Computed example of a mutant assay.
Amino acid sequence: MLSFSHQSSTKLIVGTDSVERVGKEIRQVGGTRVLLHYGSDRIKQNGLYDQITQWLQREGISYVALGGVKPNPIRSLVLDGIELCREENVDFILAVGGGSVIDSAKAIAVGVEYEGDVWDFFSDQASVTKALPIGAFVTLPASGSEASADCVLTHDTLALKRDMESNDYIRPQFALLNPDFTNSLSKKQLAIACTDIFSHVFERYFSQLEPLPFVREWQEATLRSIVSVAKELVEGKDGERTRTEMMLLATVAHNDWLSLGGIEGDWSSHAIEHELSGKYADLPHGTGLAVVMPAWMKYVYKRNPERFATFAHNVFSVTATSDATVDAYEGIKQVEAFLTTIGMPTSLQAANLPAGGFEEMAKNATLYGPIGDLEQLYDKDIIQILTLAQK
């Protein structure tokens, strides 16, 4: 175990009446003029936009709105948001949506307080020292960005997708979780979201550092719960209780509780996926992860078969044999079977993505050095993983 510090300060407000708290929560942290940031007009069609603005007005909080966030948030819209916040003297940002909207809001929040290009934070040219406070109303639970200190942005000119160095300046002040506003999500959207949730625990599980026993058991229990909930959701067993559990699993998977003890996590699958969805802008993050995770496992498992065998035994109840390598590979098959069961593609071909451009993606992924924690990966390794992911 390493020496470490931990902060997970986001206030969680859960329930079907959580929207009524939005104005009071913003007021409590000093917000008086809000940027209401969202994606599609779905929040207007389902009445959420009107509900939120009414509760803001009841607290005497004025607002301006900026919609249009798409999956894989882009720098150009963030620049529009920064300009709007400065012109309108915004002092708080409320993100209404999923991870893309929340990440876009985080990028705006740091950009408003910075004189240079916001992309500097995503290219290791600057570190965050201040940001506007933000809150989140989650309508698509997946990324866990509503309680995380992380943020991902795509440079739409360079076709590069990068993450910002983790920092607590961008961790939301509060997150409102109302399962009612997930009812309109399709089975496909739910499957993509559950894959994203699964991946955040998966990456932490395959850390080089052996975690404290209770943290390892917590990770395994969370992974089992995600698998169970995902299957229930795609089977149509999607009552309020199940959707609430999904929302909380998304938060716990990425708010750093499962990193206690100094766990860094591997994050190779994320780094490789960022190149895919940076290149193919319409590719949902969860879909790309479903393609990459099994291929990554197949490439690295023989270098640490015991870790992968433990994963297979404790997450997917694979019967232990005398050969850890055999058990480990069975665990990989179980991951693929789970993803297939909920309707996710596990290859580039199944995701209707072309097989090519691997060298460029590998070069971009390792622009700042090798990736990975359990196993460091270089250009040639990433090319091999993408090759394994073809079919």
Rank of each mutant, 00 (worst) to 15 (best):
L2C: 15
S8T: 15
S9H: 13
K11G: 10
G23D: 00
E25L: 11
I26Q: 00
T32R: 15
R33V: 07
V34R: 03
L35Y: 08
L36T: 06
H37F: 09
Y38K: 01
Q45G: 11
N46V: 09
N46H: 04
Y49L: 09
D50V: 11
Q57W: 08
E59G: 12
L66D: 03
L66T: 08
L66N: 05
L66P: 07
V69S: 05
P71E: 04
I74F: 10
I74H: 13
V78L: 07
G81A: 05
I82W: 08
L84G: 01
G97E: 01
G99S: 09
A105R: 03
K106T: 07
G111I: 04
G111C: 05
V118D: 02
W119P: 03
F121H: 05
G135N: 07
L140V: 12
E146K: 04
E146A: 06
A149V: 14
T154S: 14
T157V: 12
L158Y: 12
K161H: 12
R162W: 10
M164N: 01
S166E: 13
N167S: 15
P172K: 02
A175C: 09
K187R: 12
Q189E: 09
A191K: 08
A193E: 03
D196V: 10
H200E: 02
F214H: 14
V215W: 13
E217C: 11
W218E: 12
A221V: 12
I226S: 04
A230I: 10
E232R: 14
M246P: 10
D256I: 06
S268N: 07
S268L: 05
S268V: 08
E273P: 08
E273I: 06
E275F: 08
E275R: 10
S277E: 11
K279Q: 15
V300S: 08
Y301W: 08
T310M: 12
N314K: 13
N314F: 08
V326D: 13
L339D: 02
I342N: 03
G343V: 08
P345N: 11
S347A: 11
A350C: 07
E360Y: 12
K363E: 15
L367S: 14
I371E: 03
Q376M: 14
Q376P: 06
L377R: 00
Y378G: 13
I383M: 11
Q384R: 14
A389I: 00
